[in-house]
Structures are given as structure tokens and as C-alpha cells.
Design a binder for these strands. Sequence first.
RNA 1: GCCGGAGUGGCGGAACUGGUAGACGCAGGGGACUUAAAAUCCUCUUCCCGCAAGGGAGUGCAGGUUCGAGUCCUGCCUCCGGCACCA
Length: 822
Amino acid sequence: MDWRCGGWRALPSRIQMSYDHERIEAKWQEVWEKHRTFNVTKDESRPKFYNLCMYPYPSGALHQGHVRNYTFGDLLTRYKTMQGYNVLSPMGWDSFGLPAENAAIQTGAHPKTNTEAQIETMKTQIKQLGSMYDWDRELASHDPDFYRWDQWLFLELYAHGLAYKAESLVNWCPRDQTVLANEQVVDGGCERCGTPVERRKLAQWYFKITDFADRLLESIDDLTEWPERVKTMQRNWIGRSEGALFTIDVDGGGSFDVFTTRPDTIFGMTFCVLAPEHPLVETLISGSETEDEARRYIAEAGRTSDVERMAEGGKTGVFTGAYAINPVNERRVPIYIADYVLMGYGTGAIMAVPGQDQRDWDFATKFGLDIIRTVEPPADFDGEAYLGEGKTINSEFLDRLDRDGAVRKTIEWLEEKGIGEGTVQYRVRDWLISRQRYWGSPIPMVDCDECGLVPVPRDQLPVLLPHVEDYAPKGRSPLAAVEEFVNTDCPECDGPARRETDTMDTFVDSSWYYFRFADPANDDAIFDPSQPAYWMPVDQYIGGIEHAVLHLLYARFITKFLYDRGLSTVEEPFARLFTQGMITLGGAKMSKSKGNVVDPVEQFRSHGADALRLYHLFMGPPTDDAVWNDAGIDGTRRFLERVWKLGTAEHEFSDRGPAERDAEIIGLAHRTVRKVTEDVEGFRFNTAVPALMILANELGDYVTGSPRREAFDEAFDRLLLLMAPMAPHIAHELWEVRGHGRLLAMEAWPTWDEDLAREETVTMIVQVNGKVRDRIDVSADISADEAERMALESEKIKAWLDGDQVQRVIARPPNLVNVVKG
RNA sequence: GCCGGAGUGGCGGAACUGGUAGACGCAGGGGACUUAAAAUCCUCUUCCCGCAAGGGAGUGCAGGUUCGAGUCCUGCCUCCGGCACCA
């Protein structure tokens, strides 16, 4: 019989009770908000769980990436709440920054007006998704109550020598008209707009993240619940290299320092190279015969971007006319200027060893310089520079040593002579945080002719961002044009002074906002340390992989700083990190500019938030990119319709005694609880949803054939409990319809009984020589001997054996028996 | 170049510590219901041979280990991501 049509009959009073998702979703969103289920305070009696999704930039329109993110996050909030945790799930807005400012420039509305309108729209949409937050803790980075503490943090870093202003070569985005941090340059272009960056020499503000490089690197090992991929990216970014730093004298006076990871090859140095921007260059070339050529080369190098330099292919450079003395053997070698040596790494100068370095080899062959091998390559080696292991040669006191031995001995020698030492270099640079843009937190510094740079006293915070009508980018901060902002009194001497007009990188905001969520309304301090002492670390952090280095590195740095200041009890902010994949359509990430956006708000109307949430959970492994398929959401909607009918139909229950099929459906329900619990713990939502579907489908069959009410109730209620974090609206409605008094969200997460979950019979497969030849239903606790006997008695197996000798029987009860014949 | 990750039906994807490859869903074929359509339901759906019973092949390619390999090992190919003239 067709259970969905004939196995039940709808009562007249329930005719209006079709699955009306719009009514149900609006109803429960209101209930949850009124009930304040997800508003929390410190509660030492329960274990805490801080669950956080990376706070969004308020674009004004929820997109599928947000939906995916918040669906995962909300699932966990609800799941952990049902498990009895005190769950902190806050939401806020990354509302400062270029996107907000650029959007405002396009619409003509002021960034503040625009941003605040967009926050309201997005908040409504997030609520429509049914995703629950403690809105009492809402914060927005453009709010003076928030950015005041950005400024406080800046001053705290400044006071401890970790914020400084310095002039150096920086990355400049000509389109956004501002400088960028190294982390914000991707493939030589601006992280936001892709425009190739230019190099400019400018005075800018930095946070001294390099002081924390070793700690940031070392504690990556403690992040056991972080994806390996992200940890690798951070390790690469920090880029630790062990080697030696030593001084090389210039023949005729002067000297420069070089860093090398291969001090063992020092006897192979046949020339030296300085970066074009190296401070010694000017001295070396003035008056030399190659002076004009060198000046042209330096000027050219200054104009071209890093991308262009590398695209050129081949090495370029100019002889300075000067010579250096190799300290180990007094050999006189030429000093070149070449742009393959970067001023920003190491000392901006190298000892060139073409025998063991391919870049130096390329340069040496192009300029006809000597090549000396100091590591013996294998006999069959036919390459150019040899980078492998080998015996040291042509190196006097290092000869015949292996690499490690030669490295150690060279460093000893340098240290004895007092000209060098073993050292460690990091690739990571200090974090450039000043921006020449309007929509950000003003840097709380004052420049006084008498006193120099003076920090704004903390009781004068916040330095309010003035209202400006003309905030279009001009290459310097729009604040510089606001006289009443710029002109101020020096906090030290009361004389006339000028305010710093650059604003802070928005990654400063996001580097500590998760602390503020623990104590969001504090007017007296960035937060009361007792609050994060309870809530931190974030137990689960969820967001996109694009922040693998940027935000996640900065946040780790600031947390370590706060830890050192005694403000944080944890040294790492995020205990468990989950990075979700993107949603693609037509082979590209969904974006407005590509015109491949599927608007979630439309789907709230057409399919409902629950169907959309389930589809996001179902569509594939949460970590992987997922291809959007319009028809996919039809499938999860159909599933919900079936559950709805199961929950609202009047089933014809039987008053017969318990039978095997009752035990089967209850067993399946218990197995489903086990499966879903394990899958949720392991972030395998894509396999948890099918488990629910199987249970619902089986329940559908069950109710058509004289079901017992007790068995149905036990199984179906478990289904609703399992669905509560995934499709919360429909689950709550059905829970109520079925007469349960308590709010489903407050019920305990279901448990399972292993005895009930155990399957009575299983299908044992019987193989002959590894090929499946028969299937036999057997008791789950069958013995190996019994399994073997049944297999050999099978008619099909006898036919396959065809009288041949049985060599061996492998029995793996209850699943498999393999009969091996000769 | 270096470091990660991944290749499974028409599609998204399942497959515990090596043990029924293709769960679940989508799409498609056939059927029921309907005046009809939609919706819903039933059923089939990896490929090849066969009327069928059944057989054979099959998880990027080539080998290997094993009673047995999507899973382990070796060597390739392809794709994706990160880093990259970092001394």
C-alpha cells in the first residue's frame, strides 16, 4: 500500500496544517527571540562553549557563503546547547574598511549611513535563516565604543615598543590609493582589487609582529585542532631560516653584513650582491667608472614592480667597481648590484656562491664570473648549481666535512673571529597598519614640532573620526584636509601640533574583536579580564580559508600580546578552527560581478530556511568547495515534506503486542542517533543528513503496516531531536504539534542504547577466490566455524568450487567468508 | 621549483581499523493516481554481453603487497590551493 496516500488520513481539523514554512519560520524566530534561549551570561555551573563565525563585512545582502557559514555555526550552537553547554554565540560587523567606503562612493551615501542601513538589512536576513545569536553582545567596528579600544590597543602596543613609525619601501595600491601590508599583496597585486602594487618609500606605522615570529611559529604545533593546510600556510608565511650573519669588508674601506643559510659554502663565494636600495650602494658607486650605468639601473629597479622584475626572466645587474674580501681566505671578489637580491629580506646583501645556488649560478654565467664547487656532487651529476648533500671540497679547514659539520665549524670560526654568528631569519615582516583612507579607526598619535610623536592620552580616547563629505581617495588620508581635526594641542607641551591622519587597517579590528564579545558593553576598559578568562579561548571558530594567513596570524599575534600584558589567560585565541569551502556556480565563486548569485532571501520564500540549511549541510563535505545545484534544494524540501506528513498525519496504530519490526525501527532510530552524533562531532554533516533521510523513509514504510504507537513515538521523537539543530523551525513546530510541552531547543540531545542499536542479522558475503559468489543472511553473533560451515554448504559456492580442492578459508564473521581454491 | 590536497556513475557525493564499490540526493526511463497536467507515490537506473538466468569489466594510468586493494607501497599523469629570485 502507498503509505503516503493511503496509510493515514488527514483529519478535517488539520487540513490547514500543510507544511507552511513561512508561517512556521516566522513563528519560531519570534519565539526564540522572546525566550532569549541564546542570550548567555557567565555560569560556572555549566561547561562553556564559545562558538564563533568570523564576523562579516556588512555588504547588505546575505549570500550563500554566509548561509553556509552560519548554518554550520548555528548547528553547533544548538547542538552544544542541547548537550548542556553554556554556549556563547555572538555576532558583529566588520564595518570599517575599503569595501564600505567604496560602496559609499558608488551610491553617493556617506559610509556611516550606508553601513548602518546595510547592517540592519543583513541582520534581518540572518534572523530569517533562523541562526541564533546573543544580540545583546552585538558590536560593530565603526562604532566609537568599539574603535576607541582599537586606539587603546594601539597605545598599549606603542607603550611597549611594538608600534612604531618608519620610512621604508612599501606596497602601494594605485587604485585604492593606499598602502598595503605584505599579507595583503597577492601575486604582486592588491588583495582586494587585483591592481598590481607599486613600491613607494613612505613613512608608515607598523606593529612589530616580527618580535613574535618564533612564538607564533612554535605554538602552531599546539594547534592540534586546526587544519594542517592552514598551519602549513602560516609556517611558510613566517618562513624561518637558520644560518649565519657575518660582516664582509670592502676593499678600501667600509663593510656590509650578509645572511646565508649555507655558511658551509663560504669558500665558494666568488662575488657579492647588494640590493639596489642597499644604503652602501651610494658610497660604492660614487666616482666609480660604472657610476652612470649603476644609477640608471637603480632608478629603473625603483620603477618596476616585483612582478615585472620576475617576469623579465634572466638576471640583471651592474658591477659597482668595488671589491669585497672573503674573510675565510682573503679572496678579493667583485661587488654587484642586482635586483634579485631584495632589500626587505635578511640584510639586503648576499655572498654569492654560484656552485651551490642556482640564482647565483645564473648570474655568474651571465656576467662571466668564477664558479667554485665546495660541495662534491655525485659522479653522475650533470646539473648546474648543486644543492644536495655531499662532502665539502676546495674549502681548506672545512674539507671532507658533511654539511652539518661544515655549517657548525664555519659559524664557530666566524664567532671566534668576532665577525659573525649563527642566527635565524624570518620571512615575515612587520605588519603595516596605517592606511590613507577615511573609513577606519584614526591612529591616536599627535605630531608636535617640539616633542615629536606623542601618543594621545588614554582619557582622551576615542579620537573620533570626523564627519567628512569628501572622502574620495586622493593618495593621502581625507582626514588631512579637515583643519579642525588635524590641528590640535600637544598633550605634552600644549603647543600647536598636528594629528596623525592615517587610519588603521581593519585587520586591527578583527585581531581582538572576539575578546570584546566576552564583555561588549564595558565603558571603562577594553574588557574586564575576568570575562574572557571564562569564555576564551573560542572553542570553535568557523570561516573562510582566505583568512588562513591574514586575520588568523594577526589575531594570534595580538592574543599573545594580550597574554603578555596579563589581559588574556590564553596564548592562542582559537582552539578549534574550521575552514569551509566556497560555493561555486558555473565554475566560479558566486559573486555579483560574475552574475552567478543565487539569492538566499528568495529561497527563504520559495523553499524555506530549513530546506536551504539542510541543502548546505547535505551538498558535500563542509571543507570542500561545493557546486550549487538549483535542483538540490528541491530534494531537501521534499524530505521535509515527508517528515511533516509523518508528524501531522493520523496514523492507524495497532494495539497488537511488540513484534520484530518494532524492534527494527527502534534499532534504526538508535543507530541514527549514534551516526548523527558521531558525524556532527566530526563535522561530517553531509553524511548526517542522509542518515536522517533513511530513518524518515523507513518510518514511512513502518506506518503503513500496522505500526505500534510506542515504537513510532520513540523513533520519530528521536528524529525530531536530531533535526533540531539542522532544520530547527520545522522540528520545533512538529515537537509542539505532537504535544511536547518544552521548547525543543531546551531538550537534551538524544542518547542511544547500544543493545537496541545492535543489528540482529547481517548479510554475510561469501567469496570464492576473492569474488563475491553468494550472500547469506546470518545472525550477527555467528562464530567463525559456523560462518565457514554455512559458506561451504551453500549450493552456489559448491557449484563454483566444482569439486576442486579448498586450500584455505578466511572467515571474518559476520561480514565475510572467502574460500580460496587451488 | 618547493610544500599541501584531490582524481569514484549523467551530476553532487557515500564506503568504519584493507572485507558487498556507488549510501543519500539530483537528473533520467517506465508505471500508478488524474479528464489532463502539476504534485505525490511505486519501480528501474556504473559500463559491456545476454530474452533471461547469469557472466565479465570497473574507483586517473602502470606495476606491486595481500586470500582480498577505492583504501597500503613504488613510479607516472592530471587538476586545485599555498609559497616562490627569501639568500
